[in-house]
Protein backbone atom coordinates (compact mmCIF):
# COMPACT_ATOMS: atom_id res chain seq x y z
CA UNK A 1 0.00 0.00 0.00
CA UNK A 2 2.98 2.24 0.44
CA UNK A 3 4.07 1.92 -3.15
CA UNK A 4 1.69 4.30 -4.95
CA UNK A 5 2.56 7.03 -2.50
CA UNK A 6 6.26 6.76 -3.10
CA UNK A 7 5.77 6.73 -6.84
CA UNK A 8 3.66 9.84 -6.84
CA UNK A 9 6.09 11.58 -4.53
CA UNK A 10 8.96 10.69 -6.80
CA UNK A 11 7.02 11.95 -9.76
CA UNK A 12 6.18 15.13 -7.95
CA UNK A 13 9.81 15.74 -7.02
CA UNK A 14 10.86 15.13 -10.57
CA UNK A 15 8.25 17.54 -11.81
CA UNK A 16 9.38 20.21 -9.38
CA UNK A 17 12.98 19.72 -10.44
CA UNK A 18 12.09 20.01 -14.10
CA UNK A 19 9.95 23.03 -13.45
CA UNK A 20 12.78 24.64 -11.52
CA UNK A 21 14.99 24.20 -14.53
CA UNK A 22 12.42 25.86 -16.68
CA UNK A 23 11.52 22.85 -18.74
CA UNK A 24 8.43 20.79 -18.17
CA UNK A 25 8.54 17.89 -20.56
CA UNK A 26 5.05 16.44 -20.81
CA UNK A 27 6.22 12.88 -20.23
CA UNK A 28 7.82 13.45 -16.87
CA UNK A 29 4.68 14.89 -15.32
CA UNK A 30 2.61 11.77 -15.88
CA UNK A 31 2.25 9.26 -13.12
CA UNK A 32 3.71 5.94 -14.15
CA UNK A 33 1.10 3.33 -15.01
CA UNK A 34 0.72 0.40 -12.69
CA UNK A 35 2.69 -2.78 -13.10
CA UNK A 36 2.51 -6.16 -11.42
CA UNK A 37 5.18 -8.76 -10.92
CA UNK A 38 5.05 -11.96 -12.92
CA UNK A 39 3.25 -14.65 -10.86
CA UNK A 40 6.43 -16.72 -10.62
CA UNK A 41 8.82 -13.83 -9.93
CA UNK A 42 11.59 -14.49 -7.39
CA UNK A 43 11.77 -11.74 -4.82
CA UNK A 44 14.26 -10.84 -2.14
CA UNK A 45 15.21 -7.92 0.08
CA UNK A 46 18.84 -7.91 -0.94
CA UNK A 47 20.17 -10.21 -3.64
CA UNK A 48 23.75 -11.43 -3.19
CA UNK A 49 26.13 -14.04 -4.57
CA UNK A 50 28.77 -16.31 -3.08
CA UNK A 51 31.37 -17.88 -5.36
CA UNK A 52 33.29 -20.83 -4.04
CA UNK A 53 36.45 -20.24 -6.03
CA UNK A 54 37.98 -23.41 -4.62
CA UNK A 55 35.73 -25.25 -7.03
CA UNK A 56 36.71 -23.17 -10.07
CA UNK A 57 39.24 -25.15 -12.16
CA UNK A 58 41.93 -23.29 -14.16
CA UNK A 59 40.74 -22.17 -17.58
CA UNK A 60 37.05 -22.71 -16.87
CA UNK A 61 34.74 -20.35 -18.76
CA UNK A 62 31.44 -22.17 -18.53
CA UNK A 63 29.67 -19.46 -16.53
CA UNK A 64 30.96 -16.77 -18.88
CA UNK A 65 29.75 -18.65 -21.94
CA UNK A 66 26.30 -19.23 -20.46
CA UNK A 67 25.90 -15.60 -19.36
CA UNK A 68 27.15 -14.07 -22.57
CA UNK A 69 24.91 -16.30 -24.61
CA UNK A 70 21.65 -15.46 -22.83
CA UNK A 71 22.45 -11.76 -22.69
CA UNK A 72 23.68 -11.34 -26.27
CA UNK A 73 27.08 -10.13 -25.11
CA UNK A 74 29.27 -9.66 -28.19
CA UNK A 75 32.83 -10.81 -28.85
CA UNK A 76 34.32 -7.56 -30.04
CA UNK A 77 37.33 -8.00 -32.32
CA UNK A 78 39.47 -5.46 -30.45
CA UNK A 79 40.07 -6.87 -26.96
CA UNK A 80 40.66 -3.33 -25.62
CA UNK A 81 37.08 -2.45 -26.55
CA UNK A 82 35.52 -5.77 -25.60
CA UNK A 83 32.25 -6.17 -23.72
CA UNK A 84 32.18 -8.50 -20.70
CA UNK A 85 29.65 -9.28 -17.99
CA UNK A 86 31.36 -12.11 -16.13
CA UNK A 87 34.80 -13.52 -16.86
CA UNK A 88 37.67 -15.29 -15.12
CA UNK A 89 40.62 -13.43 -13.61
CA UNK A 90 43.56 -14.76 -11.63
CA UNK A 91 43.57 -14.37 -7.85
CA UNK A 92 46.24 -11.68 -8.16
CA UNK A 93 44.13 -9.62 -10.55
CA UNK A 94 40.87 -10.02 -8.68
CA UNK A 95 42.48 -9.08 -5.35
CA UNK A 96 45.40 -6.89 -6.40
CA UNK A 97 46.19 -5.61 -2.90
CA UNK A 98 45.90 -8.95 -1.11
CA UNK A 99 48.76 -10.75 -2.82
CA UNK A 100 52.30 -11.77 -2.01
CA UNK A 101 54.84 -13.71 -4.06
CA UNK A 102 54.47 -16.91 -2.06
CA UNK A 103 50.77 -17.71 -2.41
CA UNK A 104 49.92 -21.33 -2.98
CA UNK A 105 50.28 -22.41 -6.58
CA UNK A 106 46.86 -24.04 -6.82
CA UNK A 107 45.13 -20.83 -5.82
CA UNK A 108 47.09 -18.74 -8.26
CA UNK A 109 45.98 -20.89 -11.15
CA UNK A 110 42.30 -20.88 -10.24
CA UNK A 111 39.84 -18.93 -12.39
CA UNK A 112 38.09 -16.36 -10.25
CA UNK A 113 34.86 -15.29 -11.94
CA UNK A 114 34.52 -11.50 -11.64
CA UNK A 115 31.38 -9.51 -12.38
CA UNK A 116 29.47 -6.47 -11.17
CA UNK A 117 29.31 -6.67 -7.39
CA UNK A 118 25.93 -4.98 -7.13
CA UNK A 119 27.47 -2.90 -4.40
CA UNK A 120 25.33 -1.77 -1.48
CA UNK A 121 26.93 1.66 -1.76
CA UNK A 122 27.57 1.83 -5.50
CA UNK A 123 29.78 4.65 -6.74
CA UNK A 124 28.55 4.09 -10.31
CA UNK A 125 24.99 4.96 -9.29
CA UNK A 126 26.13 8.03 -7.37
CA UNK A 127 27.87 9.58 -10.37
CA UNK A 128 25.30 8.86 -13.11
CA UNK A 129 23.94 12.21 -14.37
CA UNK A 130 20.64 10.75 -15.65
CA UNK A 131 19.89 7.89 -13.21
CA UNK A 132 20.34 5.54 -16.14
CA UNK A 133 22.12 3.29 -13.69
CA UNK A 134 20.28 2.91 -10.42
CA UNK A 135 19.85 0.65 -7.44
CA UNK A 136 16.60 -1.23 -7.10
CA UNK A 137 15.00 -1.85 -3.69
CA UNK A 138 16.02 -5.51 -3.98
CA UNK A 139 19.67 -4.51 -4.25
CA UNK A 140 20.18 -5.11 -7.96
CA UNK A 141 22.18 -2.35 -9.66
CA UNK A 142 20.44 -1.91 -13.00
CA UNK A 143 21.11 -0.21 -16.31
CA UNK A 144 18.44 1.60 -18.31
CA UNK A 145 19.82 1.38 -21.84
CA UNK A 146 17.09 3.68 -23.14
CA UNK A 147 18.29 6.49 -20.93
CA UNK A 148 22.09 6.14 -20.91
CA UNK A 149 23.83 9.04 -22.65
CA UNK A 150 27.19 7.26 -22.84
CA UNK A 151 29.20 9.72 -20.72
CA UNK A 152 31.13 6.81 -19.14
CA UNK A 153 31.34 8.49 -15.74
CA UNK A 154 30.20 5.17 -14.23
CA UNK A 155 33.11 3.34 -15.87
CA UNK A 156 35.56 5.68 -14.21
CA UNK A 157 33.67 5.38 -10.93
CA UNK A 158 33.48 1.57 -10.77
CA UNK A 159 36.61 0.34 -9.00
CA UNK A 160 36.03 -3.22 -10.20
CA UNK A 161 36.24 -2.82 -13.99
CA UNK A 162 32.77 -4.32 -14.18
CA UNK A 163 31.45 -2.01 -16.87
CA UNK A 164 31.84 -2.11 -20.63
CA UNK A 165 31.06 0.48 -23.25
CA UNK A 166 29.67 -0.27 -26.70
CA UNK A 167 32.36 1.40 -28.75
CA UNK A 168 30.91 -0.05 -31.96
CA UNK A 169 27.74 -1.80 -33.07
CA UNK A 170 27.74 -5.11 -31.17
CA UNK A 171 25.15 -6.88 -33.37
CA UNK A 172 27.56 -8.28 -36.00
CA UNK A 173 29.77 -9.71 -33.25
CA UNK A 174 27.17 -11.77 -31.41
CA UNK A 175 27.82 -15.40 -32.33
CA UNK A 176 24.29 -16.62 -31.65
CA UNK A 177 21.42 -14.23 -31.14
CA UNK A 178 19.06 -14.95 -28.24
CA UNK A 179 15.71 -13.51 -29.38
CA UNK A 180 14.40 -13.33 -25.81
CA UNK A 181 16.88 -10.63 -24.79
CA UNK A 182 17.73 -7.36 -26.53
CA UNK A 183 21.15 -6.41 -27.84
CA UNK A 184 22.57 -2.96 -27.15
CA UNK A 185 22.95 0.12 -29.28
CA UNK A 186 26.42 1.57 -29.86
CA UNK A 187 27.16 4.35 -27.39
CA UNK A 188 25.77 2.94 -24.13
CA UNK A 189 27.41 1.30 -21.12
CA UNK A 190 26.44 -2.19 -20.00
CA UNK A 191 27.21 -4.72 -17.29
CA UNK A 192 25.92 -7.75 -15.40
CA UNK A 193 22.31 -7.32 -14.22
CA UNK A 194 22.22 -10.22 -11.72
CA UNK A 195 19.91 -11.84 -14.29
CA UNK A 196 17.10 -9.46 -13.45
CA UNK A 197 15.16 -10.68 -16.50
CA UNK A 198 15.35 -14.27 -15.22
CA UNK A 199 14.55 -13.48 -11.57
CA UNK A 200 11.50 -11.60 -12.79
CA UNK A 201 10.04 -14.78 -14.28
CA UNK A 202 11.16 -17.25 -11.65
CA UNK A 203 14.58 -18.40 -12.85
CA UNK A 204 17.91 -18.29 -11.03
CA UNK A 205 20.94 -16.57 -12.64
CA UNK A 206 22.28 -18.20 -15.79
CA UNK A 207 25.87 -18.49 -14.53
CA UNK A 208 24.72 -20.30 -11.41
CA UNK A 209 22.58 -22.76 -13.35
CA UNK A 210 25.34 -23.44 -15.85
CA UNK A 211 28.12 -24.10 -13.35
CA UNK A 212 28.78 -27.88 -13.27
CA UNK A 213 30.75 -27.56 -10.02
CA UNK A 214 27.92 -25.74 -8.21
CA UNK A 215 30.46 -23.08 -7.27
CA UNK A 216 27.96 -20.22 -7.41
CA UNK A 217 25.32 -19.60 -4.75
CA UNK A 218 22.64 -16.93 -5.03
CA UNK A 219 20.12 -15.69 -2.51
CA UNK A 220 18.84 -13.09 -0.09
CA UNK A 221 21.53 -11.51 2.06
CA UNK A 222 18.92 -10.33 4.54
CA UNK A 223 17.56 -13.83 5.11
CA UNK A 224 19.67 -15.82 7.63
CA UNK A 225 18.32 -19.08 6.19
CA UNK A 226 19.37 -18.34 2.61
CA UNK A 227 22.13 -20.46 1.06
CA UNK A 228 24.18 -17.31 0.72
CA UNK A 229 24.06 -16.50 4.41
CA UNK A 230 24.77 -20.08 5.39
CA UNK A 231 27.83 -20.19 3.17
CA UNK A 232 29.04 -16.89 4.62
CA UNK A 233 28.53 -18.18 8.17
CA UNK A 234 30.57 -21.31 7.66
CA UNK A 235 33.46 -20.22 5.41
CA UNK A 236 36.27 -17.71 5.26
CA UNK A 237 35.19 -15.27 2.56
CA UNK A 238 36.60 -12.21 0.81
CA UNK A 239 35.06 -9.30 -1.01
CA UNK A 240 37.02 -7.31 -3.58
CA UNK A 241 38.55 -4.00 -2.39
CA UNK A 242 36.57 -3.60 0.81
CA UNK A 243 38.57 -0.56 1.85
CA UNK A 244 36.74 1.55 -0.75
CA UNK A 245 33.44 1.40 1.11
CA UNK A 246 31.33 0.26 -1.82
CA UNK A 247 30.22 -2.87 0.10
CA UNK A 248 30.22 -5.44 -2.70
CA UNK A 249 27.66 -8.23 -2.59
CA UNK A 250 29.66 -10.82 -4.45
CA UNK A 251 31.63 -12.86 -1.91
CA UNK A 252 34.46 -15.30 -2.60
CA UNK A 253 35.35 -18.44 -0.70
CA UNK A 254 39.11 -18.74 -1.19
Amino acid sequence: MKKPLSISRRTLLKATGAAALGIIPAGTLLVRAAGKPHPKALQAKNWAMVINAKLCPPGCRICQEACHKVHNVPNMPDPKQDVKWIWPESYNSAFPYETHPYTDQANEKRAYPVLCNHCENPSCVRVCPTKATFQRPDGVVMMDYHRCIGCRFCMAACPYGARSFNFKDPRPHIPQLNPAYPTRTPGVVEKCNFCDERLAVGQMPACMEACPAKAILFGDLNDPASPVRQALASNVTLQRKTKLGTRPKVFYIV
Partner: peptide
Amino acid sequence: KQVLAEWKDIVVRDGKRVYVTKDGRE
Protein backbone atom coordinates in the same frame (compact mmCIF):
# COMPACT_ATOMS: atom_id res chain seq x y z
CA LYS B 1 4.63 5.55 -27.79
CA GLN B 2 3.81 6.59 -24.27
CA VAL B 3 2.60 3.13 -23.26
CA LEU B 4 5.75 1.57 -24.67
CA ALA B 5 7.82 3.99 -22.59
CA GLU B 6 5.76 2.99 -19.54
CA TRP B 7 6.38 -0.66 -20.32
CA LYS B 8 10.10 0.02 -20.42
CA ASP B 9 9.97 1.74 -17.04
CA ILE B 10 7.85 -1.01 -15.45
CA VAL B 11 10.19 -3.74 -16.70
CA VAL B 12 13.57 -2.06 -16.33
CA ARG B 13 13.05 0.20 -13.36
CA ASP B 14 10.45 -1.71 -11.32
CA GLY B 15 11.37 -5.26 -12.34
CA LYS B 16 7.76 -6.18 -13.13
CA ARG B 17 6.46 -8.02 -16.16
CA VAL B 18 2.72 -7.38 -16.15
CA TYR B 19 1.02 -4.17 -17.29
CA VAL B 20 -2.18 -3.21 -15.50
CA THR B 21 -4.42 -1.08 -17.70
CA LYS B 22 -6.64 1.72 -16.43
CA ASP B 23 -9.68 -0.55 -16.55
CA GLY B 24 -7.89 -3.23 -14.58
CA ARG B 25 -6.87 -5.67 -17.30
CA GLU B 26 -3.52 -7.39 -16.93
